[in-house]
Amino acid sequence: MEPDPRFTLANERTFLTWLSTALALSAGGVGIAALPEDVFVPWIRAVLAIMLVALSALAAGMAYPRWRNIQRALRNQAPLPPPALAALFGYGVALVAVVALVLIVVSLRHV
């Protein structure tokens, strides 16, 4: 059975949002990696960049399987699968933000 087109289109918008989130995470990681060497401790800067780019790859890599699983559930009128990676992304981005915030505050104290 074909699902209601509104649900299919909402699922597609969510898929595209996962991809744009992946692009933003990747851009953030590249931006942090490109900071001058005197900004933040180099190994922490590298860890932040790697975390963001890894989250980006995970978001991009899981976007299509999630879309497909939801589409299958809609067609079969089955319960939707839970957002298994939501906590990982939420906590991962929060961790990067907290570490960056601490580094910014520490660097401002030395100015």
Rank of each mutant, 00 (worst) to 15 (best):
P83W: 04
A33Y: 15
G31A: 12
G28V: 06
V96I: 09
V53H: 00
L85D: 05
L95G: 09
A46G: 15
A33V: 12
V39M: 07
V39K: 05
E37T: 14
Q71I: 00
V98I: 15
A87G: 11
L16G: 14
A33H: 11
A63C: 05
V47G: 05
R13P: 00
L35N: 08
N69H: 10
A78Q: 15
S56N: 00
G92S: 05
P82Y: 02
A54G: 15
R75L: 11
L16R: 15
I50R: 06
Y64C: 04
A22F: 04
A73I: 01
L25D: 11
L52Y: 02
Q77N: 04
S56G: 12
M1F: 03
V102D: 05
A33Q: 02
A73Y: 03
A86W: 08
D38I: 07
G61Q: 02
V93Q: 04
I44G: 04
A94T: 09
I44V: 14
L55D: 00
P83E: 12
I70N: 14
R75A: 15
V30A: 13
E37P: 06
L16F: 15
L101F: 07
G92V: 03
A60H: 04
P5N: 10
L85I: 08
L19E: 01
A73M: 05
V47C: 08
A59R: 12
P82K: 07
T17Q: 11
P79F: 06
V96T: 09
V105D: 06
H110D: 10
H110C: 05
P65H: 05
Y64A: 09
A24C: 06
V99D: 07
L25W: 01
V30E: 00
T17N: 10
G61Y: 13
V39R: 07
